[in-house]
Simulated assay, not measured.
Amino acid sequence: MSKQPSTPGAGPTWPGLELTPTWPDDPVKVGDFWLDGRVVTRPSGVAWAAHGDGLLHPTRQEETDPDHKVILVQLSEGAAADKAARDRFAGLVNQLHIDVVLARGGHEQDQGRLGRRFRNEDDDPVDPDEDHPLAPWVALAYAGDDGLVRLADDLLAQVDLLDLPHLGRPAGPDFRLHWIDRNRPGTNRIWPLPWPGRYDRAGWVTILVSWLLMLLMAAIAVIIAILVFRNAPPQAPPPQAGQTASPGGTGSATATLSPSPGGTPTATSSPSPSPGDTPSGGGTPTPPSRL
């Protein structure tokens, strides 16, 4: 009988183990394991308490038990980008007992004595920045004590070399790794939540349905725009300079000069008759006076 898939934030309890909450930069999931909290934080990487997702991997045809409690150790951004740090981490993992290493993954972690524990993640959601390889990680099977926490701290300490004693008499500047300040978590896969209540990766059906919905909404918006603007009344052009629109038709104003009592001519305007207008009073229209 298959078990129900586990969910983030609803993992097993960790009695006797001091956990701190995950940070905003921490991934939700690494490989096949949901992260429950931090247990070790060093410049070379982070160790989390984690549990299996309970899902069947489509490529390996292998299911990760949700009851599997692990201490997951992953290199930081700076250590994962350094070839020497990756090699030190891989060599330390290959020296561990095979029963301790439940799974491993990341860049250049499929070689050595425990290369059989490597889990391929090529069919998992991909990070947008594909130029940076996935950060190396290893999942250590938790046996109920804090011995694995000390082991995880020792692994990371041998990668960043900060706890090594001085050899000989100190002279000159201290040795400092060039990536020691880049201590953010390394590159991981992005696990979207495609639907409420679901915690597996989005399939092609979900992506196809989302695209069809987007096209449908765009078509409805175009149709609504056509229906709204097709019956709009036509707009008359604005009158040109020197012309005014008459109520009964099109008329123009003619400016004339007439003498004023003071002897100074003033300009007056009289509308010129339009073709459809008739003069009032029964007389003939007088021509405009001239100065």
Rank of each mutant, 00 (worst) to 15 (best):
I226G: 15
S252P: 07
P233I: 01
A253I: 10
A219S: 00
P237L: 10
S252T: 14
T250P: 12
T250W: 03
A255L: 09
A219C: 04
G242S: 09
Q235F: 03
P233F: 00
T250N: 15
G251Y: 10
P233L: 00
A232W: 07
I226M: 12
A236G: 02
T250R: 12
V228M: 08
G263H: 12
I223A: 13
R230A: 07
P239V: 01
I226Q: 15
S258R: 15
S252Q: 13
T250I: 07
A225Y: 04
T250L: 13
T264P: 01
Q243L: 02
L257R: 09
R230E: 02
A232I: 09
A236L: 08
A241L: 01
T244H: 06
G249S: 13
N231P: 05
G249I: 13
V222H: 01
P237G: 07
P265G: 13
I223M: 14
A225T: 10
I223F: 07
G251C: 15
L257P: 02
G251A: 06
P234C: 00
R230S: 00
A221V: 11
T264H: 12
T254R: 14
T264Y: 13
S252Y: 13
N231A: 03
Q235V: 13
P265N: 14
P239R: 05
Q240G: 08
G251D: 11
A241C: 00
G262C: 04
S252L: 05
P234N: 02
A253V: 09
P237F: 00
A219Q: 01
Q243A: 08
A232K: 14
P247G: 01
I226E: 14
V222G: 07
Q240L: 06
A221K: 07
I220E: 11
I226K: 08
G242V: 11
P247L: 12
T254W: 06
A255P: 13
A255T: 11
A253Q: 09
I224C: 10
A255R: 14
A236K: 03
A253M: 12
T250Y: 12
A221Y: 01
V222Y: 05
A232R: 15
P247Y: 00
P234S: 06
T264N: 12
A253D: 12
I223L: 08
I220Y: 02
G242Y: 01
P238H: 09
N231V: 00
F229P: 02
L257H: 05
P261C: 09
A255Y: 14
A232T: 15
S260A: 15
L257C: 11
G248F: 06
L227K: 08
T254M: 14
P233Y: 00
F229D: 06
I226L: 15
G262R: 05
A225S: 10
A241M: 02
V222Q: 07
P247M: 03
T244N: 05
P261Q: 05
A241R: 01
G262F: 12
F229Q: 02
